[in-house]
């Protein structure tokens, strides 16, 4: 037998469809003549089937992957909050500084605390805390669909939010997440 025996790597490449056609043909021809190599190829094919089964039954909730863009956005949001907080502090210092000559009068600062939040209509207020992140392009559609089924709001990496289907008759679906922070599906 002049043709080289299969290695596990070459068998794996064949199963994955990564071999050039002529190499794949040579490998196939060899397995017809060589019993151990045919068994090796069968083992790889069997493993491939088993891994497909494992992949298809892997919990889909764990399939959301946050890309760097999402973390960058979160970091940017944090920076914006910090800047707003700093500005509010400075305003407070300036205001109290101006009224230093009237210390007997307690000051009340009528400044709203800085917030960065999704702008939601009042009718949607019950779902304000149910925001999920779908930052991964590969899973975004699935994520959005699953979120809609569960009555959750969807936050995309671009910061836009979509209001999913909401059944007023039944209220929030059971199992809806109650999270202040975006959570993965």
């Amino acid at each position: 037998m002049l043709k080289p025996h299969l290695t596990r790597d070459s068998a794996e490449q064949y199963i994955l469809g990564a071999l050039a056609p002529e190499k794949a043909a040579a490998l196939e021809a060899h397995t017809l003549e060589c019993e151990p190599c045919a068994v090796l190829l069968q083992e790889e094919a069997l493993l491939s089937e088993q891994l497909t089964e494992a992949a298809s039954t892997f919990p889909r909730e764990e399939r959301v992957v946050r890309p760097l863009v999402w973390h960058a956005r979160r970091a940017g949001t944090g920076a914006a909050i910090a800047a707003l907080a700093a500005a509010a502090s400075l305003t407070l210092v300036l205001l109290t500084g101006d009224k230093a000559t009237h210390p007997s009068v307690p000051d009340t600062l009528d400044v709203r605390p800085p917030t960065v939040a999704l702008e939601l209509d009042e009718v949607d207020s019950p779902t304000k805390s149910n925001v999920v992140a779908c930052p991964d392009l590969a899973t975004q559609d699935f994520c959005t669909r699953k979120a809609a089924e569960r009555g959750l709001l969807v936050m995309n990496p671009w910061g836009t939010a979509e209001v999913p289907r909401y059944e007023a008759r039944t209220g929030l679906p059971e199992g809806a997440l109650s999270a202040r922070q975006p959570v993965s599906l």
Partner: peptide, 13 residues
């Protein structure tokens, strides 16, 4: 996570 994402995309049947 990135490797898992690749695997699931390619091998989920």
């Amino acid at each position: 996570p990135s490797a898992r994402s690749v695997f699931l995309l390619a091998c989920d049947g």
